[in-house]
Design a protein around this nucleic acid. Structure first.
Lengths: 220, 220
DNA sequence: AAATAATTTTAGGTTGCCCTAAAAGCCTTA
DNA sequence: TAAGGCTTTTAGGGCAACCTAAAATTATTT
């Protein structure tokens, strides 16, 4: 039985190791968890005792099979709750992250499986991220960062990664959401920005930072 | 900002003072919270500092206006979540109490108001208990303990009080649920038991303890 | 490779909520 | 009304998760 805090550390380690290779460092975790390195060391030892992470002093941590399994279940819960909040309660996609952070710690497999049923066993959450099934398997979707598209290529926005609320609100403002169709018109070498035309006809300049966070499924 | 623990104490005090008059004693709270009197004294002091209870040493506590308001909102959340679990996720009425105990601590007025909308602003939860509205007002329903009915009187089960899961399962087994119609046939003086006929025609002996927990709206 | 810089760990302390044991207060009843 | 028996509070600790400061280790620079 893990505490919410232990669960949050597991999730943090999982997320960091998803986007960076090699083992996860103490400072890295401290930054994500908004806490101090010393506190992280304390917690790492506890997680190592429970065989949820492999740990060698000064060498960082990595999740064990068991740890990864638990982290995956947390992500399942988080994304199912986000789906509930958006699909059923009518929240906007930029309002649900914090709430799902709380809801994901409710401890009941029965609850989460019924919720999954109730939502129609969705494969992707409101941000386009895949929802692992009860056995922890993700549905993988063919997708590319917008920054990798060439002029003339067309596609549909299927996911937004590393989303903070401000980013999502910005996207909504400029007219981009999930399922938005777009076509790359030009790449501007001088600032790496990308000119795109949305399905609505609107033409936008997308800066390179943003273009890396937008995931596209090619449609031609 | 209260901790879940503080919230649980408030709720315990509220519940005790609902069913007993006068101020709530330390031992009483300890029993409900499954903890020791010394721990209760600690917490009472903290709640008194926050002006949620009035407290005089050795004299017990009572909720302040502020404390009662918070307790009422907790009850609102608890009962709305129970309604969600039963109406939307298909849980049985005897399975939802523990889960609602966790869910009620999720901190978001927006969430709970949207949930209320989503559920169709229900006035009563799956056990027949009234759900306070956002301002803390309960809908009061004319109801009587089954033990107060006279032979020949008829009515409908509208609530079950002080429900533990075992009690609810027992009721389900003998064929009683919310909205069950019944008629009192006879009172047996020798053991205070009550003979009733259900809407289904089934005739039962109800013992006096149970008859106090069943609330009936008279129908004739 | 030595010196300096950065990271990580250890040591020791705080807070919230719990505990046991003992002291203090209240209450009943002889 | 005084004694004994409850109840409640105080005193003193424990554990989880955090902190700061200092020590240990690793990494980088010269």
């Amino acid at each position: 039985m893990l505490s919410s805090t232990e669960e949050n550390y597991l999730k943090a380690i999982y997320n960091i190791s998803e986007r960076e290779s090699g083992s996860v460092t103490t400072n890295n975790i401290a930054q994500v968890m908004q806490t101090k390195a010393a506190s992280v060391t304390d917690m790492i030892k506890k997680l190592a005792d429970k065989e949820l992470v492999d740990y060698a002093k000064y060498r960082g941590v990595s999740l064990t099979e068991k740890g990864r399994g638990l982290a995956t279940q947390l992500i399942r819960k988080h994304r199912l709750w986000e789906t509930f909040l958006v699909d059923k309660l009518g929240f906007d996609w930029d309002e649900v992250h914090e709430l799902a952070e709380e809801l994901e710690h409710i401890r009941s497999d029965e609850l989460i499986n019924r919720l999954d049923q109730f939502l129609g066993q969705p494969k992707f959450d409101p941000h386009g991220d895949p929802i692992p099934n009860a056995s922890g398997r993700f549905t993988i979707r063919q997708q590319t960062q917008l920054s990798d598209l060439k002029p003339g290529e067309k596609g549909e926005v299927v996911a937004v990664h590393h989303h903070d609320d401000a980013l999502l609100r910005h996207l909504a403002e400029i007219g981009i959401e999930l399922k938005t169709n777009l076509e790359v018109l030009e790449l501007h070498a001088y600032d790496q920005s990308i000119q795109v035309r949305l399905g609505t006809g609107k033409v936008l300049q997308i800066n390179p930072g943003l273009a890396q966070k937008l995931f596209i499924r090619r449609s031609n």
